[in-house]
Structure formats: C-alpha cells, structure tokens
C-alpha cells in the first residue's frame, strides 16, 4: 500500500542517551495517524528526525516517497507543542511571514489567513501582538500557521492544548477537513478520547520503541478481555464465573470466564425469564486503558530530549 511517510527501525541517540531505539510505522495518504506515547518516550525526537532537524543514527525515514528534501519541507506543516510564533510580532504579519518562508506569496497568504481568522474568531485580533493573545487564541493562531501553505502532510503536536470544548470541536472539524482535502495528518497527543474519535491508526512509542502499531479499532479488539457490556432490565441470572466489573444504571460491564463466550452469555441472559436485553456489545477497552496497560504507570521513561 502507498505510504506518505514511512519510518523503519529508527534509532537516535544523544551522547550516551539512546532516546529512540527502534521505532517503525507508516502513514498513508488521507489518514489521521496518532503518534502516542508517555512523556519522554521519544515522540518529539522521532518527529524531529522525520523533519530532518536531526540526523538518524540508524534505520530509515521516507517522506512523500523518498528522503527529505527542501522542496518537500515546503509541503509539510508542523505545529510544535505550544508556542512556535514570534511573540513580539502582530498576528497577521507573523503568519504571513511564516507562510512566505514556505513559498506562499504574501497576498495569497494574507487572503487565506483572513478566511481562517474569521472561522477561528481571530479577525478582531489580527493586528494584536501574539503576546497579547490568550493561550487558546495563540494555539488557534498556531494551527492557522500550520495550514496556510496547504501542506500535504501535517505533523501536529498536541493540537488541542489550551482549547476550550467549543474550540476543540472546531479544531477537530478542521483536522477532518484537512483529511478530506487529501492531506495526511500525524497527530501527537495525550488525549486518548481524541485518538478514538479522530485517528484511523496509531503507533504507541514507549521508552524509544514502537510497542503498538495498527488501526485503532483492531488494537482495541485485540486488547479486549473476555468482557461484555449489557443493558437490560429485570432480574439478571447469576452465571458461574461471571464478575460484574462496573454498573451504571441498567448497563453492566461483566467479565466472563474463559469457558464462557460472549455469544453464550447473550443467549443465557436473553433466555432468562423477566429479563429484557436492550443493548449488548463486547466491552472494548478505551485507548486510555490500553495506553496505561502497555506503558505501565504513565509518565515513566527518560525525560531527556523530549
């Protein structure tokens, strides 16, 4: 299958500290790809190697069909985690300048910026210094800066940082629109709900290694215990070995013993007198659960260089 970005067995060390030990994943055109991992796992270093800011010590990176070139950099949009704009410059001037450096003529950049400003509710602030904008506004401005040159590949680090729910929703919409436009997005985030809602596939990096890679749904199924979620009224019969893990109103999450399949459980409950099953599904773990399970306690790993 065609890939827009492919990272294979990547290694990168700073002196004695091996920050990236073995990272492999690929990103396909038109997909939203999650780059996940605890703090210090090596995500930022991986991004920087992809962007050719650092040279890899081993492995290979292929971007837009080959090694990184200056021309390709102009087709990439990068949003670093927080900040990344000149704080003493006026909003519009700064964004137009950054777009110019990417090869967009000033008038085109200005026209595009104004459309985005309207959408992100920044129009009234375009002549303010970035320093005078709120944190949320700065984050929106940062996102606009990433989009002005209409890149083919977007690498966005914590795009929802500092955004309220309304603006988070807006940013989500924009990210999905970018995918529809044909761009591929690599999104690094700690917000697992966003990963479930947006990402097609993910890679999970832990202590410098890619430990999980694949479609989100598949990963969730693979990590599912033998558990079900059932919404039912009436007196539920007790089945041997079944443990109730959680209950919210009429919805129960039940852990099943090895010998009992989900299908058997459904039949047993549906056949029980006086019980009316309204909803039934396999209980898939959240990405949050999987993240914690795979990486151990969150926040472990070396802090260096991330």
């Amino acid at each position: 299958m065609q890939t827009i970005l492919s990272v294979e067995r990547l290694r990168k060390a700073f002196g004695a500290a091996e920050v990236v030990k073995d990272v492999t994943f690929d990103v396909r055109p038109g997909e939203i790809f999650g780059l996940l991992g605890p703090n210090g796992a090596g995500k930022t270093t991986t991004i920087r190697v992809i962007l050719d800011l650092f040279k890899a010590d081993g492995g290979s990176v292929s971007v837009l069909g080959g090694p990184m070139t200056r021309a390709k950099l102009a087709r990439i949009g990068y949003l670093p985690e927080e900040r990344g704009l000149y704080r003493d410059m006026k909003l519009e001037a700064c964004l137009v300048y950054l777009a110019q450096l990417k090869g967009v003529p000033a008038d085109v950049a200005r026209k595009r910026a104004r459309v985005w400003f309207e959408r992100f509710d920044l129009a009234a602030h375009k002549d303010k210094k970035i320093n005078d904008l709120s944190k949320g506004m700065q984050q929106k401005a940062q996102l606009v800066a990433t989009l002005l040159h209409q890149p083919d590949l977007l690498i966005i680090d914590e795009p929802f940082s500092g955004l309220d729910p309304v603006n988070t929703r807006l940013a989500q919409e924009v990210i999905q629109e970018e995918r529809q436009r044909g761009a591929a997005l690599v999104m690094s985030t700690h917000q697992m709900r966003q990963v479930e809602e947006l990402c097609d596939r993910i890679v999970l990096i832990h202590a410098g290694r890619s430990v999980l890679f694949g479609p989100v749904d598949q990963i969730r199924r693979e990590h599912a215990d033998n558990a079900i979620r059932i919404t039912a009224t009436g007196e539920m019969p007790a089945l041997p070995g079944v443990v109730e893990v959680e209950r919210k109103g009429d919805t129960r999450t039940l852990h099943l013993p090895q010998a009992l399949s989900a299908q058997d459980a459904l039949r047993a409950y549906a056949a029980a007198p006086g019980v009316s099953v309204e909803a039934f599904e396999r209980a898939l773990p959240t990405m949050d659960d999987i993240f914690v399970k795979v990486t151990g306690a969150a926040g472990t790993g070396a802090r260096a260089a991330d």
């Binding site: 800011l53 990439i76 990068y78 670093p80 900040r83 990344g84 000149y86 950054l98 990417k102």
Partner: peptide, 13 residues
C-alpha cells in the same frame, strides 16, 4: 525558548 526555531527550520535552512 519559544520554539519558533523549530517552525523556521522546517521552512528554511
């Protein structure tokens, strides 16, 4: 400090 440099060097050398 403001990490502007990361954005800049993805555009210019």
């Amino acid at each position: 400090e403001t990490r502007v440099v990361e954005v800049l060097v993805t555009s210019v050398t």
